[in-house]
């Protein structure tokens, strides 16, 4: 009788208690016919702890491709032979234009993303901080960035430039990370997140599901994010890009994707759980159900190397569901 378990654990979370790892693992084993009930419970948890608001964020791929790292899912890795536009850092005007466009699409946050392992000895760093300052002067956007591995000095400089939140995914669990990337370690990622937090910046960190990880590993990621007390958790669903090592990875079933969101919501009741890349392909017409399954944030517009379904459509969906886009 898995619904008994769902209600018992749902009630526990609604009462402000923490879900344990083994409890979360039980929720991965429920009958398929009970998954919608789990989604309904996650929706209640989300409304109780985060209200009816939906956080919106748009990203710009400000420097694309040629990355030294070998992340198996990534179109931008130099280790993969993928057809897409590779380009050096956009100039300040181009980045500002992207920010203004994002604001007009209804984004509350804007994130500058660059390809590469990180900012160590990176000559572009100063140009990026200049762009961040400019966006602060000319838009009302919350400013985020995603620049890879950072030193404490970088974090200080970003904070001074006006960054309020730093994005850096853990991607997957510690135990699965080596299957996904061999050119840097999971611990380096954790260290960057700790450096960012030490300076008082908020953190946006999540990962990708459907890489071949098992349920246990997916939950390890959720609990690692909980342990790090990150503020926002973007969840990508693998969109297998041709030419990457994962191009033939079979897709997750849509109901399993929704189940994952719901379990993440129960593990992370108060955080922003954010729709990110791959959702359109993985969920098809079930995308709106994510907003009723624990999701309370989303990337709008396009992703780094793949297209989204359009900000207008997403914002309309959110309003149709009686939810409120944060920028409205």
């Amino acid at each position: 009788m898995s619904y008994d378990l769902i209600f018992m654990l749902g009630k526990k979370v609604l009462n402000g208690e923490q879900l344990t790892f083994s409890e979360a693992l039980q929720l991965t084993q429920i009958d398929e016919a009970d998954i919608p009930i789990l989604l309904g419970v996650a929706n209640k948890v989300r409304i109780k702890f985060t209200g009816n608001q939906v956080d919106t964020c748009e990203i710009v791929n400000a420097r694309s491709g040629g990355c030294s790292e070998d992340c198996k899912f990534c179109a931008q890795s130099a280790h993969h032979d993928v057809k897409f536009d590779s380009y050096p850092l956009m100039n300040e005007t181009q980045i500002l234009q992207a920010a203004k466009a994002a604001e007009s699409h209804g984004a509350y946050r804007f994130c500058i993303v660059t390809a590469g392992c990180g900012m160590k000895h990176d000559p572009d760093f100063e140009k990026i901080t200049d762009s961040i300052k400019r966006i602060g002067r000319e838009t009302g956007l919350e400013r985020c960035c995603s620049l890879g591995i950072l030193s404490p000095a970088h974090v200080k400089a970003l904070k001074a430039a006006g960054i309020t939140r730093y994005h850096h995914n853990l991607e997957t669990s510690k135990s699965y990370f080596e299957q996904i990337c061999t050119t840097h370690t999971y611990d380096e990622r954790v260290e960057t997140i700790k450096n960012v937090k030490a300076e008082g910046l908020e953190v946006c960190s999540g990962g990708i599901i459907g890489l071949g990880e098992n349920w246990q590993q997916r939950l390890e990621l959720a609990f690692a994010l909980k342990e790090l007390d990150v503020d926002s958790v973007p969840i990508n669903v693998l969109n297998p890009v041709k030419g990457t090592a994962l191009e033939d990875r079979p897709p997750l079933k849509p109901m399993e994707v929704l189940q994952t969101f719901a379990i993440f919501r129960l593990i992370l009741p108060t955080k922003i759980l954010r729709y990110a890349g791959g959702r359109e392909k993985a969920l098809g017409e079930l995308v709106p159900l994510g907003f009723l399954s624990g999701i309370n944030g989303m990337l709008i517009g396009n992703y780094l190397t793949t297209s989204g379904r359009g900000a207008d459509m997403d914002l309309t969906t959110v309003r149709n569901l009686g939810l409120k886009p944060i920028a409205e």
Partner: peptide, 12 residues
């Protein structure tokens, strides 16, 4: 906020 739960029971 309980409509998804109602829908889930309808599904069951």
């Amino acid at each position: 906020e309980d409509i998804p739960l109602l829908a889930a029971y309808a599904n069951k």
